[in-house]
Design a protein around this nucleic acid. Structure first.
Length: 852
DNA sequence: GACCTGCTGCGGTGTG
């Protein structure tokens, strides 16, 4: 490709690459791969430019068109093979990217239009799409994987010479990113000079992001850092009188008047909340406060029907909305939107997420990005100051690729077997060229092969699990068309919760809610959803039929969903601010606002710092409380609390209640405990990784938790068939069958590596064992400041009121399970579903209390 | 006096 071609093409469109853009362009022209770090606010400028380049790789390629005309290739007339793949994590981004590029390319993933719209595309249209792919294709990791499963995958894809992975930071830390790694390895095998570029937002480990994208063995990847970030403002909406501000809570509606004021003063505002129900509550609170805003404000979250969300996005784009209350659903994909202000209700939970959300505002050149934090309780006020300090110091969270997830690998093996077949030696090498599987041991590889060949020892009798077998030439293929179809319907790594759709009697779809939430409602009950008060009429065919209602105080749906992790980067930054306050420095609006409260905390107890670990003991009529504040986030605190309770109970039978939040945890004993002597002794237990692992697993109901993790693994590895699309059946069955596999493997195939994976994922992701260990080590190094307090302090109060208390008993496990089952039976009305762990835990707690 | 949460993302049927 010649530079002059590219330049001519750009010039014809008035685009002039400059600075780092030129850097990328030169690298691509040289055939180098790399990662472009796009800073806050720069957004799709890169994409525009870059996308144009992509199209050019065709213009400048073998089939050069008239340079004088400098026209983009036209899908209708060009029969060039697929040359450019653009991978994006969201279908909506695919459409946006295309619009922005203004390219007349046929560019959606195969069958995508059909699936996303009405599902009635004729077979003729589809097979036409199948026969000839466009020159450049914007697609998703899942669609790419599907393409790899086609018998002619190699013919279709070997012509690809450039792959762009957009929003790589979104993908690299999860299994979708692993799927991308595997697909890239495939493409590179067919075309060793393949050029791969990623685009990423700010991350703490850009170099690692680059290596993860290109594979550990790849040489000469280029990391291009975009321009220095544009101006970024992080500020806090301070409560009028902070001493009257709630010490606990998370909804933050006491801040409603100020938020209304802010919205009124801006053209367009995004109001981010942390949960879907919180978004519902805030939306209706805003409307209550300003009924005249009806039609000017909207709601956007992942459980709303796609059509509803598209309407909101469109209205945002047109600039016809004053505000949208949303969840992470608008984290991505609003680069072209005219958003002036971003409010964040409650903790942003991490610096990277805060930056991401701040970047939604001020997209016009020269305009600063600004995010305003709206605290929901007292200590949260400090996070604004903490975030500013962390950003200034360049402390941003890192992301790591999952380590050898075998479920994804097993799925990939079947995919590749379908896509022309494989020979084990060659594929083993290919797989090890990815970051995720670079050190995959040979015996693990053999296990995976065996698993797709016969399902392992316990499933040998089932033909459904003989998915891949070597043919006479030693090429491994899928022998059965039915299994092939089944597999294609199972491709992907996203496993969703059980939900049922919500629809008006008259037919309009509103969205979906948790099965378990609706199960608790009776016909006639009201709930708030989609910003409207709805009355449940009846449930039919996995659909909740509703009508508009008025008056009644409604329930707000609770969705399952993940818990957003409070990162250690933000936790450390918060401790640092507290330490400043401890040293008498109140040099930010946040610290000043919080001064009375922090001084109260210091007076009644103490303030923590990096050198000092604060713990408090308190005696109330409920018993002997211990509060500890490592500021390490909920999962770590759950682990620490369970671990301490377990260690103590090793010496004498004891029962503790446990509570935790992002800042600390509490242990409560009904009988006298001398925490001041017990805590230091207990802290200094094992901290080496192996022993700790053993202790943590023992201290928690680990097998129950692992069982839940296993559901996703069973789905991704293809053990479970989800049923046909549109088939209306309960996800309960999915859960039940994954439980069954879990039990069968434990009993008849304990060496099954998917079991080990479930345990490993549980430890790594849900319990954050690495952070737990680090926290424990740090706590051991810190000086313990143990304070006996007379009354709840600002720090301890929220913990005291935590509803979610977990009892750890060292009574016989059998009794415990019997009671748990009895409770569940009662709760489920006789039919024992496999249940959500939270429910299991809760019933465990209530059961234990009931027995006492 | 204070409280009661938990995100996002994708894909697939058939047979003339």
């Amino acid at each position: 490709m010649k530079p002059s071609d590219v330049q001519a093409w750009f010039a014809a469109r008035g685009w002039r690459p400059f600075g780092f853009q030129r850097e990328v362009w030169v690298a691509v022209a040289k055939g180098q791969s790399g990662l472009l770090h796009a800073t806050t606010g720069a957004g799709k400028t890169y994409a525009l430019w870059f996308g144009a380049l992509l199209a050019l790789s065709d213009v400048a390629g073998g089939r050069r068109r008239s340079r004088a005309k400098a026209e983009a290739p036209d899908a209708a007339t060009v029969a060039a093979p697929l040359q450019v793949l653009w991978i994006t994590p969201m279908r909506a981004l695919a459409a946006d990217t295309l619009r922005a590029l203004q390219l007349p390319l046929e560019s959606l993933a195969p069958h995508w239009q059909a699936g996303a719209r009405s599902g009635d595309t004729s077979s003729a249209e589809r097979s036409a799409q199948d026969k000839r792919l466009p020159t450049a294709l914007v697609t998703t990791p899942e669609s790419l994987s599907l393409m790899l499963s086609r018998a002619d995958a190699k013919e279709q894809l070997r012509s690809v010479r450039l792959v762009v992975v957009d929003e790589w930071h979104e993908l690299m830390g999860n299994k979708r990113g692993v799927q991308v790694q595997l697909a890239l390895a495939r493409l590179k095998r067919w075309r060793p000079d393949l050029v791969v570029w990623g685009m990423s937002a700010t991350l703490g480990n850009l170099d690692e992001a680059l290596r993860t994208l290109l594979g550990p063995g790849a040489e000469g990847g280029v990391l291009v850092r975009g321009e220095t970030p544009k101006e970024l403002i992080v500020d806090t909406l301070l409560p009028g009188r902070s001493e009257r501000f709630p010490w606990g809570g998370h909804l933050g509606v006491t801040m409603l008047p100020q938020v209304v004021e802010e919205i009124a003063a801006s053209s367009t505002t995004l109001v981010f909340t942390n949960t879907r129900s919180q978004a519902e509550i805030w939306y209706s609170a805003l409307l209550d406060a300003r009924p005249d805003w009806a039609g000017e404000i909207a709601l956007h979250h992942g459980s709303l029907d796609r059509a509803v969300r598209e309407w909101v996005e469109l209205a945002l784009k047109k600039g016809s909305l004053r505000a949208v209350v949303c969840t992470s659903s608008l984290d991505l994909g609003v680069d072209f939107l005219p958003v002036e202000r971003v409010l964040q209700i409650g903790s942003a939970k991490g610096i990277a997420r805060l930056l991401q959300r701040a970047g939604r505002s001020g997209h016009a050149p020269g305009r600063p990005s600004r995010i305003t934090l709206v605290p929901t309780h007292s200590i949260e006020i400090i996070e604004g100051a903490a975030a500013r300090a962390a950003i200034a110091a360049g402390q941003i969270e890192a992301r790591q690729t999952p380590h050898q997830p075998l479920d994804v690998l097993v799925q990939h093996l079947v995919t590749v077997a379908l896509g022309g077949g494989f020979t084990p030696e060659a594929l083993y090498d290919e797989v090890r060229s990815t970051a995720a599987y670079a050190s995959l041991p040979a015996d693990t590889w053999q296990w995976c092969l065996d698993f797709v060949a016969r399902g392992g020892p316990s499933l040998v009798a089932y033909p459904d699990y003989k998915r891949v077998v070597p043919d006479a030439e030693g090429v491994w293929r899928v022998p059965d068309a039915r299994l092939a179809r089944r597999h294609r319907m199972n491709i992907g790594t996203i496993v969703s919760d059980a939900s049922i759709s919500v629809q008006y009697l008259s037919g309009g779809r509103i969205g979906s809610v948790e099965e378990s939430f609706v199960a608790r409602l009776k016909p006639g009950d009201c709930f708030l959803f989609g910003g409207r008060l709805l009355e449940l009429v009846r449930i039919h065919d996995m659909t909740a039929l509703v009508r508009r209602a008025s008056g009644q105080r409604p329930a707000v749906p609770r969705w399952g969903g993940g818990r957003m992790a409070f990162t250690s980067t933000l936790g450390d930054a918060v401790v640092q601010q507290l330490a400043r306050a401890g040293a008498g420095v109140f040099d930010s609006p946040e610290l000043q606002s919080l001064r009375p409260l922090l001084e109260l905390q210091r007076q009644w107890s103490a303030l923590p710092s990096h050198e000092h670990l604060l713990a408090e003991s308190l005696q109330t009529r409920e018993g002997w409380h211990l509060f500890v504040y490592p500021f390490a986030g909920r999962p770590v605190h759950l682990g620490l609390a369970s671990l301490l309770a377990w260690r103590i109970a090793q010496h004498e039978p004891r029962t503790f209640s446990i509570a935790f939040n992002d800042y600390g945890f509490e242990l409560l004993s009904a009988v006298e405990v001398d925490w001041a002597t017990l805590l230091p002794r207990t802290l200094h237990g094992a901290t080496d990784a192996q022993a700790l692992l053993h202790e943590v697993l023992a201290s928690l109901n680990a097998s129950e938790l692992a069982r839940r993790r296993f559901r996703e693994i069973a789905r991704v590895s293809g053990l479970i068939f989800q049923g046909y699309p549109g088939e209306k059946r309960s996800n309960r069955q999915l859960q039940a069958s994954s439980s069954l596999f879990y039990e069968v493997f434990r009993k008849y195939d304990p060496g099954n590596r998917l079991l080990a994976q479930a345990e490993q994922e549980l430890l790594a992701q849900e319990l954050e064992i690495g952070r737990l260990q680090a926290s424990l080590e740090r706590m051991n190094a810190q000086q313990l400041v143990m304070r006996r307090i007379e009354r709840p302090t600002p720090f301890s109060f929220p913990l005291m009121v935590e509803l979610f208390r977990e009892k750890l008993t060292n009574e016989k496990l059998g009794d415990r399970i019997a009671r748990m089952v009895a409770q569940l039976e009662k709760a489920a009305g006789g039919s024992m579903g496999a249940g959500h762990v939270d429910e299991v835990r809760k019933s465990l707690v209530f059961g234990a209390q009931g027995a006492n």
